[in-house]
């Protein structure tokens, strides 16, 4: 029983990471039709910026409020990079979908290489507050706090995103734009401003995922974004592109499936089950669980 609880919490922790990466990816794709391969780069930027801030930024550190400040710095860095990428690189190619994908592919290759040049190819130990390494007893299982941190962070982001989509004017524009972008412009709205916004939001969430994955895995490396990104893609497709809630549901399904099968089956079998799940969902509902709609 306690194993099952631990597995569930760990699977949900993984799901939290997937969700943080996938939610932005999903909104960017749903609204702007950009399959963003550079999204993993935003994650890495967040992770390295947090790592750097913890060691160098005055007031920041690896514990207490200092760590919060470091994470905040990482999130801001990811947000800024994402917004810049949209403004400088994606916007000039407006509605040229393939070229936009190609640019993000180039960016992901060059970005990882640049990180390697700056910080070395080997993983760096990540500063993590000591409390995240403690365990609490939950339903008879000893559960490490870092997993709960991941889950809480993802829930907060989910709540904020849904509230933003539901109650703000830009949220309304994004939900409408995911459904029919052309019609939004035909109502007199410059939808491209919303593009920058979803990139920034996605960058922030991915950067947060980067910082938290550093805490969870204990290290950060230039390629850590890429491996999370592929599963985030799968989550996006299963959940339905453009749907935040769909991403959340799909992330939980993927995280739990992966964790349980990897534990009870052979290592790696869970990853393969996830891909099989993707194939099944696509054959059953080609538009994903939520179809193409931004759920709020």
């Amino acid at each position: 029983m306690s194993t099952i609880v631990l597995m569930t919490v760990t699977g949900l922790g993984l799901a939290a990471l997937y969700f943080l990466v996938a939610s932005g990816l999903s909104l960017v794709f749903g609204l702007a039709d950009v399959l963003n391969f550079a999204h993993g780069l935003f994650l890495s930027v967040g992770a390295y910026a947090t790592w750097w801030a913890a060691g160098n930024l005055p007031g920041a550190g690896s514990d207490g409020w200092g760590f919060v400040l470091a994470v905040l710095f990482g999130v801001v860095a990811g947000t800024v990079v994402a917004a810049l990428v949209e403004l400088v690189m994606i916007r000039p190619l407006y509605s040229r979908t393939i070229e936009q994908v190609l640019v993000t592919v180039g960016l992901s290759l060059a970005g990882v290489a640049a990180l390697q040049a700056g910080f070395g190819a080997d993983p760096r130990p990540f500063p993590r507050p000591s409390w995240t390494q403690q365990v609490v007893t939950l339903a008879g299982a000893r559960v490490p706090l870092d997993r709960l941190l991941l889950i809480v962070a993802a829930l907060v982001v989910l709540g904020l995103l849904l509230a933003f989509l539901r109650w703000t004017r830009y949220g309304l524009i994004i939900r409408a734009g995911v459904e029919n972008r052309e019609m939004v412009t035909a109502l007199g709205i410059d939808v491209r401003k919303a593009f920058t916004l979803v990139f920034a939001i996605g960058g922030a969430a991915a950067a947060l995922a980067g910082a938290l994955s550093g805490v969870y895995f204990g290290s950060v490396s230039p390629t850590s974004g890429a491996s999370l990104l592929i599963f985030a893609f799968i989550v996006v497709v299963i959940g339905g592109m453009g749907s935040v809630l769909g991403s959340a549901v799909a992330a939980v399904a993927v995280g739990l499936l992966q964790q349980f099968v990897n534990y009870y089956g052979t290592s790696g079998a869970g990853d393969i089950c996830v891909v099989a799940l993707l194939a099944v969902v696509l054959l059953w509902r080609p538009a994903g669980l939520a179809g193409k709609a931004a759920t709020a």
């Binding site: 004017r169 409408a176 019609m183």
Partner: peptide, 20 residues
């Protein structure tokens, strides 16, 4: 006013109007 109405199906009537 486009052919086939093009209302935003996932939005409420009030939201459709507010957006416009």
């Amino acid at each position: 006013v486009p052919e086939d109405r093009c209302v935003f199906a996932g939005l409420t009537v009030a939201e459709n109007l507010r957006l416009a």
